[in-house]
Design a protein around this nucleic acid. Sequence first.
DNA 1: CAGTGGTCTAGACCACCAC
DNA 2: TGGTGGTCTAGACCACTGC
Lengths: 252, 252
Amino acid sequence: MAMIETPRSQYGQIAELLLRRIEDGTYPAGSPLPSEDRLADELGVSRVTVNRAVGLLRIAGHVKVKRGSGTLVRALPMIHRDAKARYAARAQGTGAGDVEARFHNLQSKTVYRRIAETPAPEDVAETLGIKKDQPTLIRSRVLYANDEPTQIADSYIPWTIAEKSPELLNENAGPGGSYERLADIGHGPARFTEDVTVRMPTDEEQRVLELEPTQPVFQIWHVAYDGKDRPVEVTVHVMPGYLWKLRYGWDE
Amino acid sequence: MAMIETPRSQYGQIAELLLRRIEDGTYPAGSPLPSEDRLADELGVSRVTVNRAVGLLRIAGHVKVKRGSGTLVRALPMIHRDAKARYAARAQGTGAGDVEARFHNLQSKTVYRRIAETPAPEDVAETLGIKKDQPTLIRSRVLYANDEPTQIADSYIPWTIAEKSPELLNENAGPGGSYERLADIGHGPARFTEDVTVRMPTDEEQRVLELEPTQPVFQIWHVAYDGKDRPVEVTVHVMPGYLWKLRYGWDE
DNA sequence: CAGTGGTCTAGACCACCAC
DNA sequence: TGGTGGTCTAGACCACTGC
């Protein structure tokens, strides 16, 4: 990371200094950084410059600001998500998305925000091969690890399919989860695709995921196809970029 | 994106305003934004505030600053990368990584930076199951589309394998590319994994990819295993986040 | 040389938090 | 109420570009 010694900006160098101190334990995980005023004094620069340096650390997810209180060093470790393995585990009855959390010995929590019939947004409709605003079942939830939000997951199922399995309207869709319910009614997923992008969070995502306008998020556009290759479910995952490592694998 | 009407920061609102103007064609792709001084005048704010607003657009990749000259609206469209398809195409003789570029009618270019024997970095060594600093063949290249850098790709092959196929030392490794050469010597790739992360670019990546310190990059840690499930190649792809959509798919 | 963005400062006011 | 970070300003100096 460190280079020969370009005439770097002060805020860039200060960010590096603070990062070194985080990594060598001067500022341990979970502890607060010194206040920006104090750092400005110590380093002989204005607070604006310190603020900008801290901004770099925030973008990268190294620290998290508690408004009015202070700036804390990130506590959560990076979470691994193995696309294939997680759905395999799910098929064996493991609950939704706490596969990853358990692996890391984190306490997992899922909060459902909304389970209801809703008109399909345009992009979802296109993926599902139905018309915009045709009815779908939405299952929208937020996942937490150690009480910190780790992802938003919004699933959409065409209503003509979903209505055949009333259990899909429950938070707990029963043994094996919603994919097993789809299997019950002859639409068990046989093939998946995921499109991964990075982007800046929307205002809502900033609020829910406790992110800042400058912190990039992963978006995973997950599509499940049944045995006749008909798209039967779309799930949009939005997750803080610094928090996740996504694993994919294939043969041949 | 837009919400009820939170008391948003000025720079945030200005960023939204500028983005609207980009999207509605007021500032077309490839054209310059008005200077920050002019915008500050027009909007009745200080230049620092405009600078900060433009900073948000830069992070998201909507504009690109030409130092000393001006700020341009991004011209390149998003590039799709289908992990499975690209290696399939490669096996049929298509050159390295211009699969995606061709799809988008972009002019593609590959510049090799280094093809040489080199000691394995620690993380590469760990993946390849060899010891740190044991010799590997590195093939390091930068890919461009329409003369803009789109990715850095550094491939490592254990030297004990690579030395059996001298063509791997050529920029053009022959028909079918380097994977065919590995097949020639009994190490044809049979299985792949990719680990995807987002992070901030290093100084070198900023320079090569013409990025700014705040623009996130995708890192793809690509590993090829031969028929005996021995790791025979690691490729690290680093690419501007705003530029790519990564597609993965699997059955069952 | 003039125009552009990059950075820095000192000072200010605000919203939010904990006490 | 005092401490924290969020934001804004006016003014300044710099490096780089293109003429």
